[in-house]
Structure formats: C-alpha cells, structure tokens
Computed example of a mutant assay.
Amino acid sequence: MKVIPFKIPKPSKELIRYQVDCQPYFYDKLHQHPEIQLSCILEGEGKLIVGDYIGRFGPGDIFLLGQNVPHVFRSDDAYYQHDEARQSHSIILFFDLRAFGEAFWAAEEMQEVKEFFEQLSGCYKVCLAEPDNFVEQVRQLHHRHHLSKVVGALQLVDELMHKAALQRLNLADQMHNLSEREGKRMEQVLQFLVDESHRQLTLEEVASVANMSREAFCRFFKERTRKTLVTFLNELRLSNACQALLHSDQTIASIAFTCGFANLSHFNRVFIKTIGTTPRNFRRQATTNKV
C-alpha cells in the first residue's frame, strides 16, 4: 500500500481523465497515485511541496508529475477564510498507463512516448513559448470523446516532448513510493510545519508529531527530503516572506517576525544566502518590474 493513496474517480479502463477542480482551496494532503498528472493552474496561489522542493504555484503555471510521486498543492491561508472573491481553479489530465495495455506500449510507434513517460520520476514545471495555447488545447479535451480524446491527449504529450522545456523541481527521489506508514508520518510533519512555521519550533516538538525520538526523526527527515529540519523550515518561511514582501506594506522587520524568524539579522542572512539579494532589494525590484 502507498502513502495516502488517492484514487482518481474514473472508469477502470479510462485512458485519459479530464478533471476540473474549482473550489475555495486545493486538496491539501500529501498524496500519490499511479496516474501521470498534468496540472494547469488557472486561479489560486500557494505552495507546492514535492520531496525536497518547496515552491510557489500560481495562475498560468503548468506542472507535470510522474507516477506515484507524493505531492501537495497547499493553497495560501487566505483561501481557507471563506472569501467568495477567492477560488482555486485548475484543469488536470490524468494519464493511466496501465489502461493502455502492454500490447499498446510494445508497438514501435509508441516507444518514444513510452520512454518519455518512464523517465518522469519527479515533478516538473512545464515551460512553453505559447502556454495559453497549450492550456486551451487541454480545455478542448473536455469536449472530445472516444478516439478523438485520446488522439488529442497524445498530441499534448507530443508537445511536451518536443516543444516544452521541463524544469525538474524535486532533486531527490527519496519520497517516491513511500510506504503507507511513512507517508502518513511525513504528511503529518509537513502539515504541522506549514501550519506552525510562523513561530519558533523545537526539534523535540516536531519529532513528537512524528512520534519519534530526536535522532530517529533527524535521520527520517533528512533521508526523505535531503534537507535538515532547519533548512526546510527556513525555505518554508522564506516562501511566506517573499509573498509578504510582494503583497503587503508590512515593514521588513515585521515580516521577519511574522514568518517565524527569531530576529531581523538572521532573516537578512538567510534571505541573502537563499534568494541572492536583500529583502529590501527584492521588494524594490518587484515594485520596479510592475511599473
């Protein structure tokens, strides 16, 4: 059994599943499924967590995930406030390779596609010259049926193979195919860190969430994220800080404390080391680019 197995609601022999998610916030549990997933974000912002990767997602982003890759699209806190003006909206395609059958993949014409799918071992950001046109092609699959739907989906795969640049996001595969027990433990830890990163946390407190000793938890976490707890927490806090710098008028000191940093000097050091510039310059450059 796998970590939080997520069963895609579809007929057992359906090759391509077209799904629209439109709700206040996206499904926020760490999960995995055997289908390859193509996600087009239309509305909504938040954090994407996949293995050792913590990053932002927002409107216009396109992501491709391989089989059984644990992931979570965690919407920002504002989307949990029942604000009708905010919504999370995405279009998702699920490719069920098992439903195609062995004979299909044995055909010479399908070898390139088979190799492409087999190499998808993580999560990728899809970069295209004309992303809007690609998303519109995905939308059109909703109106296509039977063979036309399959042909249209394979045409999209052809674009991904030959016209898109796939930027690998997670570098480690340690979270690939976690056991159910490991996955549940990891999901609890990640959820706790996302919810509580705004305050000071001790190693003992986080280890207790996993019901592990300090030493066992450090090994468990490092093996599956390739990061120490401190590094992971800093990246999580920096992600929140960057959003506050872009979208609020708070002072830099206030943002540092609100996001969980103990003092301003530590925040500045971590920000420069990770982002490559000071928080002040980051805000100034973002403001300049908007003009």
Results as ranks from 00 to 15, higher is better:
R181N: 05
F221H: 09
A262V: 13
S254Q: 13
L245F: 03
N170P: 01
T231Q: 13
T228N: 09
G276S: 00
S239M: 13
R168F: 04
A241T: 05
M186L: 15
T277C: 11
I255Q: 03
N177H: 03
C218T: 13
N240L: 12
A216C: 02
F257K: 12
E187C: 13
N263D: 15
N170D: 07
Q243A: 11
R283G: 00
R214S: 15
K273R: 11
S239V: 10
Q250C: 11
C259I: 03
F221A: 00
T225Y: 01
A207C: 03
M175V: 07
S254F: 01
Q191H: 14
R219W: 02
L178C: 07
L245Q: 09
L238G: 06
A210Y: 06
E196Q: 15
G276D: 04
L229R: 06
Q250Y: 12
E215H: 12
T202G: 15
F232H: 09
L229T: 09
L190S: 03
I272T: 04
E204R: 15
C242R: 14
R214C: 13
F221Y: 02
M186R: 02
C242V: 07
F192I: 11
L201W: 04
T287W: 10
R224K: 13
V209F: 07
N268K: 12
N177V: 04
F257E: 11
R283C: 09
L193Q: 07
Q243L: 12
C259D: 09
I255F: 00
F217G: 11
L229E: 00
P279Y: 01
R181H: 05
Q191V: 08
R185E: 06
M212D: 12
E215K: 14
C218R: 13
A256L: 00
F282S: 00
F282N: 05
R181L: 08
S254R: 07
V206L: 09
A286F: 00
R237E: 06
Q243C: 11
N234E: 14
L203M: 15
N268T: 05
T278G: 04
L264N: 09
T258M: 02
T231K: 07
E205G: 12
Q243N: 15
P279D: 07
S197W: 08
C242F: 04
E182M: 04
L171P: 01
T287C: 08
R181I: 07
S265W: 08
F220N: 03
N289C: 04
Q191C: 00
Q285M: 10
A210N: 04
A210K: 01
F220V: 06
G183L: 07
E235K: 08
V206I: 12
F220S: 05
Q174T: 05
T277K: 01
A207K: 10
E180R: 10
Q191I: 03
F221S: 09
N240G: 14
A286I: 02
D249A: 09
C218K: 13
T274E: 12
T288C: 06
R284A: 14
E204I: 11
V270N: 03
A256E: 02
R280W: 08
L178M: 05
F220T: 06
T225V: 08
L229D: 05
K184V: 06
R269W: 02
